[in-house]
Nucleic acid binder design. Structure first.
Lengths: 240, 240
DNA sequence: ATAGAAAGCTTGTTTAAACAAGTTTGGCAA
DNA sequence: TTGCCAAACTTGTTTAAACAAGCTTTCTAT
């Protein structure tokens, strides 16, 4: 499905790196070599390589070559990374899931809610609380606010399936960018009621604003994760 | 001191967005307009714009324009993001800091340590435990493993100042890429001893491998954060 | 008046070329 | 043999051009 040339080269190289055809610490073929292999220009190769560098797969070295620094991650954990729905994450980890809606109501954004969520004061919103189960265990309390104007006609049925699927495929609104904060917070009464926290008295909390492809925020979300199944991945590139 | 043209354009535009000269939800000037303003080619402009999109400042819209989606973040929190030393983060937040070394010893990587840290078995390492204080409060327990071959002659004095400064400026080794995991873990005996955890019984833990510009891993690090001062920032772009 | 085509914007992809700058190799001269 | 320099690699930056594709405006034909 990649329509752009650099995308298919990116995916091809990514796959070869993950299969360790290009192994950890190896040098990649030179850009000129890859140009011949893929029958494209050097710029197109460089675009694919730079995206692989940005996800921490490659380390380019000026004058020397490009080194593979990808190492396989142990797939035992439920990993979060990128913008991914709960169901997508679960599927990637071969786990079964279901979702229970605790609360779904309409409201208008007060000044306090507007400040917290980033929506304009007075916006019509949906507030949605859901519990996410993985293999029968309640792991995540999701609290979402959706802009009714962009995500209309939200129902319990939709909320228990996949909202992202509804948004992208039924409403035809592409999801683009998400800016998130991660913190660790004390468990609330609601957390204790719905999640089997055991002896943990805090949770991993991911808070974020989600924008569509037009740069309009349509969602404010807070995911409250039971610590024992939470892992967030990230690659950082140091800028000079 | 950006030496490349696209870097200085990037920084200039970033600054203007942060100053809200280009405000939230505004459209940026078109690429053709910006080429006139900055006197450069469209490619160079596009490079600057795409880096601003990758940090969640801009949302490009095919055929329509580029929308500003940056909103200022409340600067009250101690934010983590990118590869940044503790001192750099503290300085950015106008806070005073000091560091106490708990433990500094040499060791050779056993099989277990090699698997955990990603260093080859038998590597000579430094193991370093430090407490980081912010305005007098013990907030972070840092546990580091350094490859002696690349980070030689580590002393308590260096460890209490800035190791990144030592590595980059004294040893002249550029730090490039860091792959990290974030989890929430039960407090250990060591955490309880050194950090004033109050009634928290867990911590935010950032675990990571750090690579130099040659793609060689020189550090394995674990930062154990007291929850109340921990906040991690991230921008995710959804890929189709 | 309205539908629809066309023109003129916008961003997205790809190529080609030239040059800059860092590293390695190989050969030449002392 | 040793030291040094030049040649031949490598990646990094910039320009120019052409075309694709999405969106908006304008004009035209019905």
């Amino acid at each position: 499905m990649p329509k752009a040339k650099y995308e298919s080269i990116y995916h091809d190289l990514k796959h070869k790196i993950e299969q360790e055809e290009y192994a950890y610490q190896d040098l990649m073929p030179s850009e000129n070599r890859l140009t011949e292999v893929y029958g494209c220009s050097r710029n197109t190769i460089r675009r694919a390589l730079s995206e692989l560098a940005s996800i921490g797969y490659l380390q380019p070295m000026h004058g020397k070559g490009v080194r593979v620094i990808y190492t396989p991650v142990p797939q035992s954990e439920f990993l979060i990374g990128g913008i991914e729905s709960f169901k997508e994450s679960a599927a990637r980890n071969h786990l079964t899931t279901h979702t229970k809606v605790i609360r779904l109501e309409e409201l208008s954004a007060t000044r306090v809610i507007a400040k917290k969520t980033g929506f304009p004061e007075g916006s019509l919103l949906y507030e949605l609380h859901r519990i996410r189960y993985l293999d029968g265990q309640p792991l995540i309390l999701d609290i979402n606010f959706f802009l009714q104007e962009l995500v209309p006609n939200l129902t319990v049925t939709i909320a228990e399936k996949s909202i992202y699927d509804y948004i992208e495929n039924e409403l035809g609104m592409p999801i683009a960018t998400s800016r998130r904060h991660m913190t660790v917070e004390h468990a609330t009464r609601e957390d204790e009621t719905y999640l089997a926290l055991g002896d943990y008295n805090c949770l991993a909390v991911i808070t974020g604003r989600v924008f569509n492809a037009d740069g309009i925020q349509f969602e404010y979300t807070q995911s409250r994760h039971r610590p024992d199944f939470f892992c967030f991945q990230d690659t950082a590139i140091r800028t000079k």
